[in-house]
């Protein structure tokens, strides 16, 4: 039982990071209907920016918040310069553009930071404590707390502020939103900026857990974030969080308890998610689009 709980706890910790990146995906999907393949690479790039700032002598938390600001500006810029240009094109065109961004950001990071392994400080320290036989790392707990706090902050932004209402309205009915005086195209850019910030946090939290990192840091995380977003429902922020945590736990349990799948953790987890999707085709919390004919 303690072993089982141990697997669940460490699954929740990695799930927190998946949740953050999944939330970023959901943010962009809700506002623009685009699945952003470059989300992971945006996060990776932010992580490098943070590393660079620390390398140049900034204290960790200064670098952390500076990175958030830079990431926000970067996300807004990407939407304005690139994504906006294809906003009226078919889905495959927009997806291809985000794939182009993925390739470009990955290459740019390899170019700028020479493709070498870097290490990023762990803000939570390496202490662990024991809860009834289950070892909990402060770092894991920190990741989980930060993730949940961000989710709560986003919820407040979206549900309790005028700006959040405008963001939601722009995503749901852009035409009508413009008639109400909402600058819809800026709302979309804002959505990308916020998504970039979430990704930056995910990257800066996950990098220390890997020991060292290079430009391929976020590729596997992106895959799990996709799985999490789909599992929770692409249009549901709550779903992204639950999905992220669930994916973390499923991955751990499947690998640990089913022998056949020991070296098939990833396919097995994907299979579980597919099975859930077959029961709920729009994810656990997603809404089926109601269509009038």
């Amino acid at each position: 039982m303690a072993d089982f709980l141990q697997q669940v706890v460490s699954g929740l910790a990695s799930g927190g990071v998946y949740a953050l990146l999944a939330l970023a995906l959901v943010l962009i999907y809700r506002s623009t209907g685009v699945v952003n393949f470059a989300q992971g690479e945006m996060a990776m790039f932010s992580t490098f920016v943070c590393w660079e700032l620390i390398d140049r002598g900034l204290p960790y938390w200064v670098a952390f918040f500076a990175t958030l600001a830079i990431s926000f500006a970067g996300g807004v810029l990407i939407e304005r310069l690139v994504v906006h240009a294809v906003s009226r094109a078919a889905a495959i065109t927009v997806v291809t553009v985000t794939i182009g961004l993925l390739i470009m950001l990955n290459g740019a990071a390899a170019w700028i930071w020479k493709g070498e392994q870097r290490t990023l400080e762990n803000p939570f320290g390496t202490r662990t404590f024991d809860v009834g036989g289950v070892v909990v790392a402060v770092q894991d707990l920190g990741i989980l707390v930060v993730s949940l706090a961000l989710v709560a902050a986003l919820w407040v932004l979206f549900q309790r502020t005028r700006l959040g209402l405008a963001l939601r309205a722009s995503a749901l009915n852009p035409e009508s939103s413009r008639l109400h005086g909402i600058r819809v195209s800026w709302m979309l850019a804002l959505g990308w900026g916020l998504a970039a910030v979430l990704g930056a946090v995910a990257g800066m939290l996950v990098a220390p857990t890997q020991g060292s990192f290079d430009q391929n840091l976020m590729l596997p995380v992106l895959i799990f974030a996709f799985a999490a977003a789909v599992l929770g429902g692409l249009d549901s922020p709550l779903g992204a969080v639950v999905g992220g945590l669930a994916v973390g736990v499923i991955l751990n349990l499947v690998g640990a308890y089913i022998d056949f799948f020991a070296d098939l953790r990833l396919p097995a987890a994907l299979l579980v998610i597919l099975a859930i999707l077959l029961l709920r085709p729009h994810g656990l919390f997603g809404r089926a689009a109601v269509r009038r004919v």
Partner: peptide
């Protein structure tokens, strides 16, 4: 009618006052 079908009546009215 430009209704924000997924939003509540109250939120629709708030959007009316947005400008």
């Amino acid at each position: 009618r430009g209704t924000f079908a997924e939003l509540s009546v109250d939120e629709n009215l708030r959007l009316g006052a947005y400008s």
